[in-house]
Design a binder for these strands. Structure first.
Lengths: 357, 357
DNA sequence: TCTAGTCTTTGAACCGATTCAATCAGTCAC
DNA sequence: GTGACTGATTGAATCGGTTCAAAGACTAGA
């Protein structure tokens, strides 16, 4: 960037001091009208653009937030980001999105970078539960909000009750009469996955089913390819032992599973009912529309951003807040028998079911 | 951010001058071993983190790139971003992602912000063809690369030949014997959409079909909901006049259309063959796997990032380069009759077809 | 011992915008 | 005419890191 028109040049051009130019930019009411317009036209003529690093150096912090997202190719997270951005924009701060892509090294690099940049605050869906690096940031006074994480008094966080989500899904499948249910997801050390599994087990117990009526198919990660692979394993089982329903830890896995079933000629939902998680747009758009546990994605983002701005404004006397939303089951064709589906006359094939609201 | 440990404190603690601390950070080989370790342990003890704005102020530019993405919820763009990030990371610069979300005002805001931040360069998939604001940036010396745009000598750009993509899709549909074909997409002033339509028309002419064998269903934008809406319009037509094949301007529209057909009980591909565009992961994962025109998404991103870094390094004697990739048709179940599909023994139901490679 | 050369370290100047105490100009009241 | 006050403007100091000419320390060769 060959860029040399600074505030000094503007001042010289307009025949005023640098202080006055700065005032025109930041507190225009303190400047008399004739001076102001002189300065403004000088700015115009020279094509002056404020250098943010100078300003930031003085201010000690920037006017941007950052969201370190776990997986930018998962629509769930882009929807959360959309919510964050709405609030950030309204508050006049910019939002940068950084993609850790599930890689702790990349996450660590971005966190260091953001600290060097002195961003106003960091929103993050961490790769692991290991928050020592984040704790270092927090101790330095950097506001941090955890997104899509279970509550922890040490942090501001927003999340959804994943245990309840798992309960909703499996309760629904039990009500549909399924006796052998599979839980598909992983890795198990991911909190969200573990919680959804825990919820599944509780639902089973509440329905009076034996624990071994739930089989667990563990995947290495939560994406479409892993869903397909799980599908291969499932369809390899003899029909008599094969589960008649599957609850997937997210919609990407569910979509992969659904596709593999179609390829293998296993009918969904008649031979295998499927429930996903997150209710991303593609879930409803699948050829067999997917039942899914909906999380309030944009609301999650908006709330997280609001917490962050509050923390940033409050300074040292800030009290961490944990917000937990309740999930909602959206029943579509993938988990109810075809006769039942046509009985319900909801045109798009989706009917909301708010439980224990 | 209460943050007060600067390079000066480190220097005092280590008993050296600030220049030496800076050398330890930037040119460690110039510093003797004992001094270096003294400084490093002072840094460690004080928890010093370099303030990027100070450094940036001196350097005149930052060490970050930015990608202003058109629609963060379209997996096509997140894949492009992934490619950009690979190159950026290898070059030791960070990547920020900004989402214009198809809104010119937001795009403009982000461009201003990035200029104030003095980023090293901007990659952008612009909302419209109106590039006057970008031209202002370029004149100030800001490197700019257009992504997924048709070539224009005034800019560095990477893109895919969308006319050829349209030809591939419609040629394929003609070969399948379809006589009435619909083009679904919009708005028409979008270059990509117009090019894909133009290619469709050329393919039709090449196959000796009359121009009116192609009907155009214009959508307001390219997303799943618009695809569904187009599906409603299509299925409302009397069977005898209804197109037997649809070429959609992107996969989101195609997925929406596919879903609506399923809801309406129109068989895909027997009653309506569908070809999409972009070949996003969800296209292959649909229950009726979608034929699609594949763009080399990550390669597009990598190439764009390389062009940008080159432009940033070259300075004034830089010559703009336009890179155009060729699309590739991926045929899946949504566009070939079921008998043909089972004849091909490609297990995943996807077979690549590189045309005029 | 002296000189040339190498390696290390220093510290003031600088980048660009903001801030604030100080100055200046003008108005009003007495 | 003087003093008090308001409002506008100034300009030097400041933020934190980088740079570079210059000084200092040391070694090797003559």
């Amino acid at each position: 960037m060959r860029d040399s028109t600074g505030i000094k040049h503007v001042a010289a051009r307009a025949g005023v001091s640098v202080g006055t130019v700065s005032n025109v930019l930041n507190r225009p009411d303190r400047v008399s009208e004739p001076t102001r317009s002189k300065v403004l036209s000088a700015i115009e003529e020279l094509g002056f653009v404020r250098n943010e690093s100078g300003r930031q150096l003085r201010a000690g912090h920037s006017r941007t937030l950052a969201y370190v997202v776990l997986d930018a190719s998962n629509p769930f997270f882009t929807d959360v980001a959309k919510g964050i951005e709405q609030v950030a924009r309204a508050a006049g701060v910019a939002l940068y999105i950084c993609n850790s892509d599930g890689d702790t090294a990349r996450e660590a690099d971005y966190l260091d970078l953001l600290l060097e940049q002195r961003v106003r605050g960091i929103l993050i869906t961490p790769v692991t539960q290991e928050t020592s690096q984040l704790a270092v940031h927090a101790r330095r006074g950097m506001p941090v909000v955890l997104v899509d994480r279970s509550p922890d008094a040490a942090w501001c966080s927003v999340g959804v009750d994943d245990v309840e989500g798992g309960e909703l899904a499996v309760t629904h499948l039990c009500e549909q009469g399924h006796q052998r249910i599979a839980f598909v997801g992983g890795p198990m050390h991911t909190v969200q996955v573990a919680d959804r599994l825990e919820g599944s087990r509780r639902a089973l117990a509440a329905a009076g089913r034996p624990p071994d009526s739930l089989s667990v198919i563990e995947t290495t990660t939560l994406n479409v390819a892993e869903g397909r692979r799980a599908g291969e394993r499932l369809s390899g089982l003899p029909r008599a032992r094969r589960p008649t329903a599957a609850f997937c830890a997210n919609d990407l896995v569910a979509l992969g599973l659904l596709q593999q079933m179609t390829v293998m000629g296993v009918d969904v939902p008649d031979e295998l009912a499927i429930v996903g998680y997150d209710d991303i747009e593609f879930a409803g758009a699948a050829a067999v529309p997917l039942s899914s546990v909906r999380q309030p994605r944009e609301l999650l983002g908006r709330t997280a951003a609001e917490l962050l701005l509050a923390e940033s404004a409050a300074g040292t006397d800030h009290v961490h807040q944990q917000v937990v939303f309740r999930p909602e089951l959206v029943v579509r064709a993938s988990s109810i028998t075809k006769s039942e589906l046509s009985a319900s006359n909801e045109p798009s094939g989706s009917l909301k079911q708010t439980e224990r609201g």
